[in-house]
Each structure stands twice: as C-alpha cells, then as structure tokens.
Design a protein around this nucleic acid. Sequence first.
DNA 1: CGCCTGGTTGACGCTATTCAAAAGTCGTGG
DNA 2: CCACGACTTTTGAATAGCGTCAACCAGGCG
Lengths: 273, 273
Amino acid sequence: MMMQNHFDSAVSNPFEMRLRAVTGVDGVAVANILSAFGPGRDFRSKRDIVPEGKPAESLLVLTEGWACRYRLLRDGRRQIITLLLPGDVCNPDVLAWDRADYGVASLTACTVIDASVTALRTMILRMPDIAQAWMKLILADNAMLAEHNACLGRRSAREHLAHLLCELFLRLKTVGRADVRNFSLPITQEEIGDTLGLTPVHVNRVLQVLRNEGVISFQGHKVTILNRDQLRAEAGFDGRYLHSGADLRLLDSRAPVAGVAAPSAAHSQPART
Amino acid sequence: MMMQNHFDSAVSNPFEMRLRAVTGVDGVAVANILSAFGPGRDFRSKRDIVPEGKPAESLLVLTEGWACRYRLLRDGRRQIITLLLPGDVCNPDVLAWDRADYGVASLTACTVIDASVTALRTMILRMPDIAQAWMKLILADNAMLAEHNACLGRRSAREHLAHLLCELFLRLKTVGRADVRNFSLPITQEEIGDTLGLTPVHVNRVLQVLRNEGVISFQGHKVTILNRDQLRAEAGFDGRYLHSGADLRLLDSRAPVAGVAAPSAAHSQPART
DNA sequence: CGCCTGGTTGACGCTATTCAAAAGTCGTGG
DNA sequence: CCACGACTTTTGAATAGCGTCAACCAGGCG
C-alpha cells in the first residue's frame, strides 16, 4: 500500500508535521495518508479555491501560504470561519458531503495538494488507524471552532486580538513556521477583522494600543511578541484546545523550552502576576 | 453483535431519529450503535454533567431535556458553545481525547445515556459504516459551530436571535419535538444570552421587539413563529448547514410540506417580499 | 507618474452593556 | 391558603465599545 508520494522533504512538510502532532500516527500510516495526495496546485493571492456552496470533488490540504474558510451573508458581510495555515485541511467535510457550507479562499499566494475523496474513503474503510487519525483532525478543528465561539461571543476586541496572536504563534510553531517570538502575519487588517468579527478600522486601533504598550511589535506584516506573559494573560489564553502537541510553555517566560536556546532575557519582561 | 438495548420505543427515541436523519445509516447499524448505550441517568436542572476540564470516561447522549456545552473565562463570563437538544451527542471528542475543553451542563431536568468509549472504539474499528456515521455526526457538529461563528461575528443581536429561533425550530422538528409552528424554549433569557454572546437585558429587549412586531409570540417559554418568512429573512437563515434532512421548507410559507395538514392560513401571514 | 490597495486618523452615532430597581413567577413551608 | 424567598423578567438611565463615514497618507506597480 505504501507508495511514492509527492513530498520531497518529509521533515519539512507541514501537513506531515501537523498529522504527527495532532493524531500521533506512526510512520507507516503517515506515509499511507500522504500517498493519497497528488502534486500541488498554486493559487494567486485572494482567489477562491472552493467557492461558497460549490461542490468539491477532492479533499484539499494547504501546504504553503495562508488561506481561509469563510461564510458570506447576503449583504456582503464576511466572516472568516478559520484561518488556514500550512498543513491545515481546507475542507474536511468533503468526507461526508460533497458540498461544503463555506467557501475556501487564498489570502496569500499559496499551494494546495488534493486527494480524491473515494481514495481516502477506501483507505479509511480498510485502515482503522487512519480513520482514527482523520477523526482526530476533525475533532481538533471542532475544538478550535468552539474556542473561537468563546472569543467571538465573550471576549473584547483587545482580548480577542491577543488571543488570535497567541493561537497563530503556536499553530505556526507546530509546523515550523515561527521563530522563538516572531512570525509573519501576511494578511490585511481587513482580513483580521473578518476573522475577529470586527471592522478593519477597529482592528487598526486595537493593534496600535498593543504596540504602544509594548506588548507586541508589528511592522510590515511581521509580529514580534515582546511580552509573552502579558499577551497570554490579556487573551486569557490556554492553548490546550489546539490539541497539537505544541509546547504551551512557549508562551510562558517562566518556563523556557528545552532544546531551544534561552530566549533573550534582555528583551523578555518578567511576569507581573 | 446485535443485542438488546435500552430503548422501549425505537421510533420516538430522539437519538435514533437524529442518527438516521444525519448519517443515513440503515437499521442494523443503528441498532448496533444503540446497543452500546446503557440505561439513562437523570439530572436535575442546572447541574454539571461533565465539569469543564474534567476527564470523561464515557460518551454521553442527551435523550430528554435541554443541556449545553459551555466555556468559562477566568472572570466568570460564560459562552454556551452549543445548546444540546434531545438526540444530541454531548461530548463527541471523548472519541479522541479523554479530556474535553468544555463543560457540559443541564439547563432543564434531563436524562442522558452513555456508552463506554472503548466499546465504541472497537465498534468503529470493526464496522466501517459505523465509523462513517460518527464522522458525519461530528462533521454536522462542525458545520453548526461554523454557522454560529458567522452569527457571533457578523450578525446583529436581532438577526442572531432570529437565527437561533429558526435553528431550534428545525432541530426540534427533526427529533419530533416541535409543532407546526410552536416549540418550547425551556431556558432562561440569561442562558439565551450566553448562547448569543449577549447580556440577558439585551436579549429581553430584542425579544420584545420581535414580539411587538408580531414576528413571534413568546410567553411562558412557549415560542410560536407567527411569520415564518419574515423570521427567516431577518435571520438570513439557510438551514442546509444543519445536514439533518430537516425539511427546510418548514420555514417557508410558500412551500407547505407534504404530509402535514395545511398550516392554519388564518394565522399565518402572507410573505411580504 | 498616477492609480490602487491598504494603513492611519478623527468625528460622530449606534448598538449593546452596565447599573439599578421594580415587578412578576414559582416552589416551599407554615 | 397564604407568605416568603429566590430566581427571572422587565424597565429606565447612563455609558462604553465598536461601527460608520470620510479624509489623508504610504507604498507598490503598471
């Protein structure tokens, strides 16, 4: 069953990294899953990958760049349901229905690999551990949606934005796309607003407050977390919902992570409980 | 594998109804799934069924009454992630992790049946169609969470409340708990607020506007949808995301449903497009 | 060089929150 | 049957948070 797949460097493949982190599957199962996918397709920035309500015939995984799932209201208001990062499954529900309730769009230039649904389904039917792996991926998605509900319903704009930055940092970390305290946030403030349920104007203002207070720096779509403890505290962030094996202490200055050079203590500020 | 289960009347069992509606599984598979569950446990109103962050050892299904999944922020703010109605799975993620990210609480007196996770897992491993059924249940949950995100992020209080009423009506309908245009809404306005991300005071005000305009009537926790078309239009409601086979035309006065006596035309108002 | 997209800023308005209190409602016990 | 207390619904007034509108600025690209 194991066959050649289209990934050159297994280690740097974000989908494989995420698969291992979330599902805990072993090497053979990983190779089997990956073997179902074809070569990548490239998309320019801000294109529909799957238009809303349009049936999709294959399951898509983002391997490079940023994308999103979105819902549109009739009058044009848009809610970004999930920001999709490298390694994320774009449309898991294609495993159950051929028509998704949402659209998938690229936010930057990006590349997507796809697998035929029937191929995945037979694989799932024959290999129970792979079925379990997909179940975990879907449930991880579920957990993220639940947390976002809490953010949208009960957190202030400031808390919500801080929460988003914490989440993105950890998610990017688990696919090897974040530094010790910096990461790239290559989307517009309007798109951030569509994610948080805010207007771009308000996103801008809140962002500046966080900047002026020295919690983060943000210039040219590069974010640096200057005060991990404060950011985490303001967000009320507890990353366990990510179920991604990411080391949650990455956001805690009191618990530097083994295997990482001690974070420059000169810049990180002490916790202020 | 088929064995006696604890349901007296298969037809009126809401979990079975939902299972059939969402997953489309046949009689044998349904019986197998049901056979994994024990007799019901009863809960008083407003109790924790699974406290937040506490590990659960079994999968729970609500068969009577209302409950919810919720998340608490440190300062006491609560977001109800999902309202659970008869037939709903309380904690699907127990299939992947033993510790849920949210709590489950009863909102009314209710009864819950449970199945051991290991029993379900072996069943899933051996019977692919049952694995597929659980996948669909989970993805249906996912779809609902996504829609709620759009509600929380981009709908006004009024739109959101209208949307909630539409959703509850259809969901109750698929488990046989709603009339042609009435249903019972046995929770407090504070709990509605925790669902919509609003304060109870504001829920009260919005509710009254809808009442005064004759869109709904609402007294003693009984809701009557007086003007289906207006309610649906104001909510921007499209029930396909429910994936429950519910007849979406139940909310459209122009398409009365076969098999149902013509809704009393004297009371239903004409569409006012 | 001018256009276009995206970021920034200010003034103003509306939606929903907050605080507070009155008026039901319901279960319980006398 | 009535009285009591706890919870829920309702109402009002004041406020805060975020949205809207509009203008201006900066950078990239044809």
